[in-house]
Nucleic acid binder design. Structure first.
Lengths: 247, 247
DNA sequence: TCATTTTATGAACCAGATTCAGAATCATTC
DNA sequence: GAATGATTCTGAATCTGGTTCATAAAATGA
């Protein structure tokens, strides 16, 4: 059935087209003014055609999110592959996330919205499931790093489930992305450079769960050096211009 | 101008009426099906009257959020007033938040939505400002506790701004509320009892920033005892039924 | 080529937020 | 306490933008 194949391929291509157009519009004019008809028009298709791919606007949003999560997974996998002390690898996930946020500034804004009851409930089961499925490898990556840490004697689970160890890091990162996007909140408390603070607090957290080797969270020199090293060794391609300041 | 006063009072009363009706509808049927006309009808007013108070639906949402934040502030203030080691007081904020989330299950769902670009941008400056203003006392409460901690020698700021110390706790809590409401995510990784995990990770974080006295984050007995004590001493009225399990 | 099936189209439809011209109420004055 | 002007309330009309679906167009295959 070569014909079926071709059709499927074309369908997938068109879906990609729609997704890209939608993402572009989000980057350009914000989530607020995203319109189904505009997306279709931008791709020279009728509105109805768009609905052959996505059963609703919410579905489309969830799909875009899946796509971006897929790219984010790539970041996580780099840390799994990186040969370095487990403590630096888990820390690297946060650094990678910050770099990711710079490359896809729309992602966390979108994700925050997507996981809102209003969108999440309105999306189709299929797309929801797909996003969860796409997200799984992030958990698996972290799990791999924790396993290595335990094996290397850098971390003692103290009887807790593997992934619990990282939930603090996860929620802390998530929450920080939220705050960063909540225009005005951080200014209210006169807090600057939120991602740098995140890294410091993360180091504190990792110390707190007993992840070896311990690192003074307020040693700026060491932090800067570590971030630089991670950028150089793991994300060189994403931090092209040498002048680029750390996250 | 007694007449002006009365008018103002009546206006405020009606606004409250609307806010309550809206909150009730959110609790009842979810954010998704909240409708301006329904709210007005529920209060026996015309739709237009509702718009004399709130310039848009988003404005209304932000207002509800402000109202709830006001109640949340009360929780924070209890911890400021509580006479106990600073470490227990800051920890108590998280415990209080969890209790708060149980009492107002709509709050964090709503807040997540409100701080979404789609709502935040669409709300009026005035209401946005109001919400930020209402939130300030939370920061001040935490600040008070940190000051006490420093004064008591429980915490060394290491040259960082006061509030930075707590940003990890803040974002961790925020992120956890997010995850809890993202139907399916925690199940995906087989994580149960998220708020309990939050408290353990928070203890780790507090240890990590060097907040004395240190507490083993995986000592279940100690954790349980502390939570119980906080509930008894600070939130007795909010945890009526003695049988109620800890958060 | 023609009949049949599949897909694309975009105008019509619909939900629900928002507005606004007129009705009702209130305050003030004589 | 009636008249007048100011204020407030009302809800049908308007508007926006997501979604549908009858019809047109294209693809398939005999």
């Amino acid at each position: 059935m070569a014909i079926q194949d071709r059709k499927e391929r074309q369908l997938a291509e068109r879906e990609q087209l729609f997704l890209n157009a939608a993402r572009e519009q989000i980057c350009q004019d914000g989530l607020l003014s995203l319109q189904m008809a505009k997306i279709a028009r931008a791709c020279d298709y009728a509105t109805g055609t768009l609905y052959q791919h996505f059963s609703s606007k919410e579905d489309l949003l969830v799909s875009i999110c899946s796509e971006l999560v897929d790219k984010r997974v790539e970041i996580f996998n780099r840390l799994v592959a990186w040969e370095a002390p487990s403590r630096e690898r888990i820390f690297g996930i946060a650094v990678g996330d910050i770099i990711f946020a710079r490359h896809y500034p729309e992602h966390f804004r979108l994700a925050q919205f997507v996981f809102t009851e209003v969108v999440w409930q309105a999306a189709s089961d299929r797309r929801r499931q797909q996003l969860l499925e796409t997200s799984k490898p992030m958990g698996e990556a972290v799990q791999r790093i924790i396993e290595d840490a335990v094996a290397a004697g850098d971390l003692d689970l103290r009887g807790r489930p593997l992934l619990e160890m990282t939930l603090g890091q996860w929620t802390m990162t998530l929450g920080m992305h939220n705050l960063v996007h909540a225009e005005g909140v951080l200014q209210l408390y006169n807090l600057h450079d939120p991602y740098r603070i995140l890294l410091r607090q993360l180091n504190a957290l990792l110390n707190g769960v007993g992840w070896q080797p311990q690192q003074d969270p307020f040693d700026e020199q060491a932090l800067e050096a570590l971030v630089q090293r991670i950028q150089r060794n793991v994300f060189a391609d994403l931090c092209e211009n040498g002048a680029e300041k750390t996250p």
